[in-house]
Design a protein around this nucleic acid. Structure first.
Lengths: 140, 140
DNA sequence: AAAATAATGCAACAGTGTTGCAAACAGTAT
DNA sequence: ATACTGTTTGCAACACTGTTGCATTATTTT
């Protein structure tokens, strides 16, 4: 089962026409396995033992994966990027939930669609970033 | 007219029971005068000439004002806090718009209300952070 | 005016993320 | 297999935003 993520990761990287490096495969596999969006540090912790990787390389791999739309970044009010793999569900825009106590971030299903966001005249919408904050089931 | 903001600022600070310092008055007046949420650096720039103030003090004043709910903070994907005065309109939760070209941030009217945000069972909603990204009228 | 309390300035720090450049590597052609 | 080419990596140093501790200064109270 754990190997499935690895294989999926390899497939995704191959499909996006990039070089197959162990950093990319491992990191994408970790993000695929994870249910929630995790930080750079948490990824580093997951890599311990598996693969030695420089901090900078990790950043660059994450940037590369995000550019290829294989993962996406979420910012939250602790000013830290969190990363999550783009499963099919997540290719469309969606909201995130962040627990104000344990800082866990999960992806919510989708955006309230079809709304007119009442932008001023002349403004052009590109993207919506919605984070719902509160307590997760474990922290309630 | 510019003095109005000063007077309003003084009133707000007095009303919230804090000490009246020139830093607080000036900074709040600047934020009241500003139509959009601005960064720590932009506030510093506004202060030039008016008042000499340490970087750290500016941070602390902003933190104090936010705790007293006289202003509010917005985070965005450049990982920088932006601050905006709480006019009456903004006491309730509201959305923000950020221009992806000039980084200008403005407040939108209000949140799409009465929605069930489809949180997982056991999750508890506290606050909603919604940023609409796109191009502002000048950058289109 | 003096005392009590809170805010400020300074220096040093912490954390995340970035840049430049030489060395190592993956993919491809020979 | 081997050599080539351009990417990717590791390292060191940096940039930026924001924080902490403590002595000094300012505001408010008595």
């Amino acid at each position: 089962m754990p190997n499935t993520f690895r294989t999926t990761a390899e497939g995704m990287i191959h499909h996006s026409g990039g070089r197959m490096t162990s950093g990319r495969v491992n990191i994408l596999a970790i993000l695929l396995a994870e249910q929630q969006a995790i930080t750079h540090r948490e990824i580093e912790r997951h890599l311990l033992g598996k693969l030695q990787l420089d901090r900078v390389t990790l950043y660059r791999v994450l940037e590369w994966l995000a550019n290829k739309h294989l993962i996406h970044k979420v910012i939250s009010d602790d000013r830290v990027w969190r990363f999550h793999a783009n499963h099919k569900l997540h290719l469309q825009q969606h909201a995130h939930f962040k627990c104000t106590r344990c800082a866990r971030v999960i992806c919510l299903d989708d955006l309230p669609a079809g709304r007119d966001w009442s932008l001023p005249i002349g403004y052009q919408l590109q993207e919506i970033e919605l984070t719902v904050k509160g307590l997760c089931a474990e922290c309630v």
